[in-house]
Amino acid sequence: MTPSELRTYLRQRGQASLVDLVARFDTDPEVVRDVLGYWQRKGRIQEAAAGCGKTCSNCNNGPVVFYQWQE
């Protein structure tokens, strides 16, 4: 996975979680975090937390972090 591949993917989707990115690029989470960090330092990716999407309020996993591309 290159920085430009990650950029293209996030531009197309708008946002993705770390789990989504690891699965999409079939790579180690640390590699994905490194590339995300590259774009975050440039101000092109922003983190956004979201709940699990269910209304039961029994979620013990806490919020999921999504990475959003910033134009």
Rank of each mutant, 00 (worst) to 15 (best):
M1C: 03
T2E: 13
T2F: 09
T2K: 12
T2M: 09
S4Q: 13
S4C: 13
E5H: 10
E5I: 06
L6F: 05
L6G: 04
L6S: 04
R7H: 12
T8N: 11
T8D: 13
T8F: 06
T8E: 11
T8M: 07
Y9E: 11
Y9M: 10
L10M: 08
R11S: 15
R11H: 14
Q12N: 11
Q12E: 13
R13G: 12
R13W: 10
G14R: 00
G14I: 00
Q15N: 11
Q15M: 12
Q15C: 12
Q15S: 14
A16Y: 01
A16Q: 05
A16C: 03
A16L: 02
A16S: 07
L18W: 10
D20S: 02
D20I: 01
L21Q: 12
L21E: 12
L21R: 07
A23P: 00
A23T: 06
R24F: 14
F25V: 03
D26Y: 04
D26I: 07
D26T: 08
T27L: 11
T27E: 15
P29T: 10
P29R: 04
E30A: 12
E30G: 12
E30I: 08
E30C: 06
V32P: 09
R33H: 15
R33N: 15
R33L: 15
R33Q: 15
D34M: 14
D34C: 13
V35A: 14
V35I: 15
L36Q: 03
L36S: 03
G37C: 08
G37P: 07
G37Q: 07
G37N: 09
W39E: 12
W39M: 07
R41Q: 06
R41S: 04
R41H: 04
R41F: 08
G43D: 10
G43E: 11
G43S: 12
R44Q: 10
R44I: 06
I45C: 00
Q46L: 09
Q46S: 08
E47Y: 03
A48R: 14
A49V: 07
A50T: 05
C52V: 01
K54I: 04
K54A: 13
T55H: 06
T55Y: 07
T55I: 00
S57V: 01
S57R: 00
S57D: 05
N58P: 00
C59W: 06
C59D: 10
N60P: 00
N60H: 05
N61W: 02
N61V: 03
N61Q: 06
G62M: 11
P63D: 13
V64A: 04
V64Q: 05
V64S: 01
V64W: 04
V65Y: 11
V65F: 08
V65M: 09
V65S: 05
F66H: 11
F66N: 07
Y67G: 02
Y67F: 08
Y67N: 03
Q70N: 03
Q70C: 02
Q70S: 05
Q70G: 00
E71A: 10
E71I: 02
